[in-house]
């Protein structure tokens, strides 16, 4: 995570925040040069969503504010950081929109579909797994990243807990009511410790009151990247989650644009640099980019 750059900007951020006090929850972007190409006067079929967005020069993106490495709003600042955020910048760039013109809107897991259905946001990039159930109500393009359930443990325990088989009787923390906590309890005999956020789980892990945290590897990597000397993601992936970009259901033009942009980012290196500057900070190697789905289903 780029603490130095953010610290230097904090003072400016404070002033900017004072000016936009009215923005509640989602702050408007402040300046900063994009590392990604910004298309000049991009061409889209007239009347399509990408064309409308490009014309307005603004885009509202639903992201997480509480997941380090993916989508995280550092306290007292007005721009989130993380891999999802970088992906949003890449996509905005292809619409000719600078990062400063992206409106960030916090979403939590439960309100991602409503935000898209009610057009509160234009797209959602928020560790948003592609599932059949969700595709009944929203569109999902991608995946731009594939992950799966893994374990996060303390550095000193990484030889003791190497995978789900070592979890019998071990206190494992995850979010209340999540599938991950059920899997480790039912199938591997772990003792469940439910909290309302992953951050709370990770703090308990660092405090020594639980011995592992489980959820999508990408989320765990974000925490490992925050404290690379203390925490380690271990073990095989024991489920598959494919993160996609949420858009309005049935908008095929938008889907095509998103898929194309994601594929392009795989090729021109911007996906790789996005990963390396965020999740990659935990020290893991940048994986091979996934293969995206076609847009036939809409």
């Amino acid at each position: 995570m780029q603490f130095k750059r953010r610290k230097a900007r904090a003072a400016i951020g404070a002033m900017a925040l004072a000016l936009v006090l009215s923005a509640c929850g989602g702050g408007s972007g402040s300046g900063g040069d994009s590392e990604y190409p910004i298309a000049e006067n991009p061409e889209f079929a007239s009347g399509s969503t990408p064309a409308k967005l490009a014309d307005s020069g603004k885009i509202t993106v639903g992201v997480k504010f509480d997941q380090p490495g993916l989508g995280f709003m550092p306290p007292g600042e007005d721009n989130p950081v993380g891999f999802d955020i970088e992906m949003a910048k890449i996509i905005a760039g292809q619409l000719g929109i600078a990062p400063s013109d992206i409106q960030w809107k916090e979403t939590v897991s439960d309100n991602r579909e409503p935000f898209l259905q009610n057009e509160v946001v234009d797209i959602v990039i928020a560790s948003y797994s592609i599932t059949e159930d969700r595709q009944k109500v929203v569109g999902q393009a991608g995946p731009y990243y594939v992950t799966g359930q893994q374990l996060l443990v303390r550095e000193e325990d990484k030889d003791k807990i190497t995978g789900p088989e070592d979890l019998k009787g071990v206190k494992v923390c995850s979010v209340t009511g999540s599938t991950s906590i059920e899997t480790v309890t039912k199938e591997y005999g772990a003792e469940p410790v439910p909290f309302d956020t992953y951050s709370a789980c990770v703090r308990q892990l660092q405090n020594g009151t639980v011995d592992a945290v489980t959820t999508d590897g990408a989320i765990l990597l974000g925490y490992a990247a925050q404290s690379p000397d203390e925490l380690e993601v271990v073990g095989p992936v024991f489920s598959e989650e494919r993160y996609g970009v949420g858009y309005y259901k049935g908008d095929t033009e938008m889907c095509k644009f998103l898929t194309e942009t994601i594929n392009q980012s795989f090729e021109n290196g911007s996906w790789k640099s996005a990963f390396e500057s965020t999740l990659g900070e935990s020290g893991i190697e940048t994986p091979e980019p996934p293969t995206t789905d076609s847009c036939s289903q809409g």
Binding site: F65, P74, P75, G76, D196, S199, A200
Partner: peptide, 25 residues
């Protein structure tokens, strides 16, 4: 409200003490 992520006082506090910068519950 913090249990359902309503951006209130307690949740804001949580964002502060969960950041590695402060770590001060």
């Amino acid at each position: 409200g913090f249990t359902i992520a309503y951006p209130g006082f307690v949740r804001e506090g949580e964002l502060i003490f969960t950041s590695t910068l402060y770590n001060n519950p």
